[in-house]
Simulated scan of single mutants.
Amino acid sequence: MKHLSAFQRDILYIVSDLETSYGLGIKEALEEYYGEDVNTGRVYQNLSTLVEEGYLEKSAIDKRTNSYTLTEKALRAIEHRHRWQRTRADGQLAG
């Protein structure tokens, strides 16, 4: 996960939080988090990259809409990131 951009990591966290993760829903959640418009093309380009790299699985909801779910690789990467962040934060809090 360390090679992913912050935007891609944010997408993974949003997918993990949404009940049904589809492109426009992910875009809306990103916009809510960032407090500004997010380019639709940027969202779909990064979703495609995350699918290609094995972090997301894509399946069709209908002819125009795809849903995205986290893979085991993504779940392991998120857990690893959480451990890494806790270690860094614990070191700062102890000092």
Rank of each mutant, 00 (worst) to 15 (best):
Y55S: 00
L47E: 05
K27A: 04
N66A: 08
I78N: 03
H82Q: 09
T87R: 10
Y13M: 09
Q92V: 10
M1W: 10
L56V: 03
L24E: 15
L12S: 02
L30R: 03
E28Q: 14
E72F: 08
L18Y: 10
E57H: 01
I26T: 07
W84C: 05
T87H: 11
Q45E: 09
L70K: 05
R86L: 13
E53W: 08
K58Q: 00
K27D: 04
I26M: 02
I11A: 01
M1T: 04
A29T: 10
F7G: 02
T69N: 10
S5D: 10
D37V: 06
R88Q: 11
A77W: 02
G41D: 07
D90N: 06
D62Y: 08
E57N: 03
E28P: 00
A60T: 04
Y68S: 02
A29I: 08
R64N: 14
Y34I: 04
R64P: 00
H82G: 11
S16T: 06
Q8V: 00
I14Y: 07
R86H: 15
K58S: 01
E53I: 01
I11M: 09
Y33I: 06
I78E: 01
Q45V: 01
Y44V: 04
A29V: 10
L47K: 05
G54T: 00
K2I: 14
A29W: 05
L18V: 01
S67T: 13
A6G: 10
L93Y: 13
T65S: 04
T87G: 09
E32Q: 15
A60I: 03
L93H: 08
E57T: 02
M1P: 05
Q92Y: 15
T40D: 08
M1S: 13
M1V: 11
S5W: 00
A94K: 15
G95L: 12
G35W: 03
F7N: 03
L4E: 06
S5L: 00
Y44A: 05
S59K: 11
E19A: 07
A77N: 06
R64W: 09
E72P: 00
E52Y: 00
D10N: 08
Y33F: 12
I14V: 11
Y68T: 00
L30M: 08
R88G: 04
E32Y: 05
L56P: 04
I11L: 10
N46G: 03
T40Q: 11
Y33H: 09
Y22K: 07
E19D: 15
Q85D: 15
M1R: 12
H3S: 05
M1C: 06
G25D: 11
L30D: 07
D10I: 03
Y34P: 13
D10G: 07
A6T: 13
A6D: 15
